[in-house]
Amino acid sequence: MLIPRFEYHKPSTLKEACEIKGKFKGKAQLLAGGTDIIPNMKKRIILPDSLISLNGISELKSNSVSGKNRCARIGACATVSSLIRGKFLLPYSALLTGLESLGSPLIRNMATIGGNLATARPAADLSPSLIAYKGKAILCSVAGKREVSLDDFFLGPGKTILNDDEILAEIILDELPACTGSGYIKLGTRKALEISLVNVAAVIALEKPDGVIAGARIVMGAVGPIPLRATTAENLLMGEKPSDGLFAEAGKAAAEDSRPIDDFRGSAEYRRDMVRVITVRALQKALHDIR
């Protein structure tokens, strides 16, 4: 399979990359891991005039844990495997599970966290947990930087709030408060090389050990045009003591919050039922993660 011809740019700074992207407007695409865009170019689904490689920009690959609130800053071009190996994401169990269940080892060695977000695939493995952690994105343009909540990042399948001259540069995760845990469950057909039929990430925080739930965020993937918050389920959890019964209710509420469609991979009905099941499991994992 041939890749249609394009003009190749390999800037060495983020600023330069933003300039090029701005210049070509919508006709340029970014190249990071390539695991999404290259197949799509081969299939002629995406046909950019220019590709801007971000792989020469070292600042996009650097990760750090810093600041007085010990937030994790993840470079957008960090590969999935480097983040698994890096250990600094260990507290973020749901994200780690997502990283480990993305594609296959071959894909994980190439795919980047930024790419997984910016391609905005509804079934992506990383966005649900990153949203659930109240993750933020740093978007860079020639004009400067802006910080946005990942809650607001996605607009639709393949669509984000990134402007033509903007590049996703960094993802920021705040340090998890005490008594916080998270879990991610992906449902697929095979045990590897899978696109999620449904996935759910849950983060819960307890007021104190064995206390009531003081914070809950549940994000569902592949059941809507963008990752969806299960807000009814979240509200139902707040102020309650975790229990199987409570989680079951939250699962039902999450299923109601989901907006799945029928496609050749599965029916809306099945997906909705699975949101119910795996929300419960994600919550149980999150609770277990606290303990």
């Binding site: 399979m1 695991t35 290259i38 590709l51 296959s104 071959l106 060695n109 190439m110």
Partner: peptide, 21 residues
């Protein structure tokens, strides 16, 4: 990038060389 037949080691890590420029 879905079958692994084109796997090579890139700086020691296995990757699919059919989806890499």
């Amino acid at each position: 990038g879905e079958c692994g037949a084109c796997t090579i080691l890139l700086d020691g890590q296995p990757v699919s060389s059919c989806v890499m420029l």
